[in-house]
Design a protein around this nucleic acid. Structure first.
Length: 371
RNA sequence: GGACGGGUGGGUGAGUGGCUAAAACCAGCAGACUGUAAAUCUGCCGCUCCUUGCGGGCUACGGAGGUUCGAAUCCUCCCCCGUCCA
């Protein structure tokens, strides 16, 4: 039982091959975590996810608190049992929702007052309340509540949000020490600081001093250029404790995953493969393919000729395009399956490359193909 | 044979004198999506010309005429379709 994180190999680039042991299984890192906000990865059964060798899923505190309610999930035996996913789960705190539901919220040092997107009812989320919910849900990795702001934001505004997030992190840690069980759940702090290098450094140092078992980097990939995302990530990973896992929240595009890995990121998540799939955006070894386009109407080839997923082995582009045109559910199901396979396959290759110290050459090959 | 109702752009269907190349929806086409208020959203969608502009020309509301400065909208005749009565 309990948790253990170890870095097995470090590539010359700074990328780490690691392993995060949790009560529900071991996660090989760098890992990509498919997003299953409402305790489901849209369009995939748990069996599908196991077939894809998904190591860890993301679920969302905000959404599950509103529906069906954390107490209900607790009474059903916790999130793993409720959703029949006996493997690792990470719950995001709802901090990002605080950000994206901007018109419906009011943030103070106490917490966030917001309106439900479901029925307009008013709710209050504090760092403590978020943790209470996350403890009830019972995910393996849980996140502190943070305040995410848009990039770019002014330095004073960014400092305000970062300081608040830091204060919340401290309160979260204290709350978890009393009410949490470190053998059952691992609490991650979240570094903020926007696109301001000084603030990022300060925030990383201060958060690092709080001695969390793991660290996330938030507030990035929200509109700023990729180079900026990388620069900020790099600043932060250089300062975080080397023996703790680092989770870069909400990234990224397929060709970007490797960039983050080489900056020392161990965990990532993104809605792109799943949402994109539902919208007809398929990721392939030769770049993005918008399957709804008329040019695939009678294309007998698989989505990606290099891909070995069950969808590419069996179905043609013409068929998938037809499913989209007809508004068939299977379109989303098959596309999601392929996209997740594609993402997870890239991560597999990244781990392999780190193991053999060939990340840099793999990166040039990969990025040349995807662009 | 008679009485009503109706014929609008690829489809459904608003519009009853100018603000109408004509609402809205669908279909079609192109695109966006980075800790999921997203099976969503955005743009284009008669033809054509150019110095691409809240630009010009042409064609268009069953057909042909007419009234009017101006007609999808009003009048006349004709052709179709639906319902009912003989």
């Amino acid at each position: 039982m309990g948790f253990q994180f170890e870095v097995l190999t470090t590539d010359p680039t700074g990328a780490r091959l690691g392993r995060l042991v949790t009560p529900h299984g071991t996660i090989e890192t760098p890992a990509f975590m498919p997003v299953g906000t409402a305790a489901t990865v849209k369009g995939q059964t748990q069996r599908d996810l196991e077939d894809l060798h998904v190591q860890v899923l993301l679920a969302n505190t905000y959404h599950l608190y509103l529906r069906p309610g954390h107490e209900l999930i607790r009474s059903m035996g916790g999130l793993h049992q409720f959703m029949s996913w006996p493997h690792p789960i990470l719950t995001d705190s709802g901090g990002f929702q605080v950000f994206s539901l901007s018109e419906l919220r009011k943030v103070t040092d106490d917490g966030v007052r917001f309106r439900s997107h479901l029925d307009g009812s008013e709710h209050f989320l504090s760092p403590e309340k978020a943790l209470e919910i996350e403890i009830a849900l019972g995910a393996d990795v849980i996140m502190v509540l943070d305040e995410c702001i848009e990039a770019p934001s002014s330095e004073p505004r960014t400092l305000e949000a970062a300081s608040r997030t830091l204060g919340w992190a401290r309160r979260s840690r204290d709350y978890f020490e009393i009410h949490g069980d470190p053998a059952r759940q691992m609490l991650f702090g979240i570094v903020q600081g926007g696109t301001h290098p000084g603030l990022r450094r300060e925030n990383a140092d201060a958060l690092g001093a709080l001695n969390f078992p793991g660290y996330a980097i938030g507030g990035l990939a929200v509109g700023e250029p990729h180079e900026v995302t990388c620069a900020m990530t790099s600043l932060v990973t250089a300062r975080l404790p080397r023996d703790r896992p680092r989770y870069l929240m909400g990234v990224g595009k397929p060709e970007q995953l490797i960039d983050y890995a080489r900056l020392g990121i161990d965990m990532m998540d993104c809605v792109l493969p799943t949402r994109g799939a539902r919208h007809g955006c398929l990721f392939t070894s030769e770049g993005r393919l918008l399957i709804k386009s008329a040019r695939y109407a009678n294309d007998p080839r698989p989505v990606d000729e290099r891909c070995r997923c069950t969808v590419c082995r069996r179905y043609s582009r013409a068929y998938l395009r037809h499913l989209y045109s007809a508004g068939e559910l299977l379109a989303a199901i098959l596309s999601t399956h392929h996209n997740l396979y594609f993402y997870l396959d890239i991560m597999r290759e990244i781990r392999e490359a780190i193991r053999f110290g060939k990340l840099e050459s793999f990166r040039s090959v990969l990025q040349a193909r995807l662009k």
